[in-house]
Computed example of a mutant assay.
Amino acid sequence: MDWFIVVFLPFKLLVLGAGMFFAIKWHHDQGENEERAAVLRTGGKMVAVFVLALLCVGLFAFVLSRMVGLDLSFP
């Protein structure tokens, strides 16, 4: 069973890396057709949605961990 991690991890990194490369390339190619301001405005909206979603997930994890009784106080 130890071989699974040795095979799976590089395969996963390769597939995710290729997917990210082609996603970034596709978005870059799409951005050349639009105006620069529109691309920046869309990028700003995406960053705002991502940060909001990240805060919601973090808050949900904090509340859920408090509900199950985990001690999250600083020493």
Rank of each mutant, 00 (worst) to 15 (best):
M67N: 05
G44T: 03
L9K: 08
V63P: 09
F8I: 15
L72G: 12
L70Y: 07
A23R: 06
M46V: 12
V7C: 02
R41M: 03
L9I: 12
A18W: 07
F4R: 05
F62H: 14
D2L: 11
Q30H: 05
F60I: 02
G19T: 12
M46R: 08
L52Q: 00
S65Q: 15
L59A: 13
S73A: 15
T42A: 08
R66T: 14
L52K: 02
S65L: 15
N33E: 06
V15C: 01
F74D: 09
G43M: 00
D29L: 12
V57F: 02
R41E: 03
P75G: 14
G58H: 08
A48S: 02
R41Q: 03
K25C: 10
S73D: 10
S73V: 07
R66D: 11
F60N: 02
V7H: 01
K12W: 08
A23M: 14
L55S: 08
G17H: 02
P75E: 08
A23S: 10
L14G: 00
T42P: 02
W3R: 10
R66I: 07
M46S: 10
L9V: 14
G58Y: 12
A18S: 05
V47P: 04
G44I: 00
F74K: 12
M46K: 06
H28I: 05
V49E: 03
M1C: 12
A38M: 05
L54D: 13
V68K: 03
R36I: 04
A38T: 07
G69L: 00
S65M: 15
M67Y: 08
L55Y: 06
K45F: 10
V57W: 01
A48C: 00
E32C: 06
R41V: 03
K12M: 09
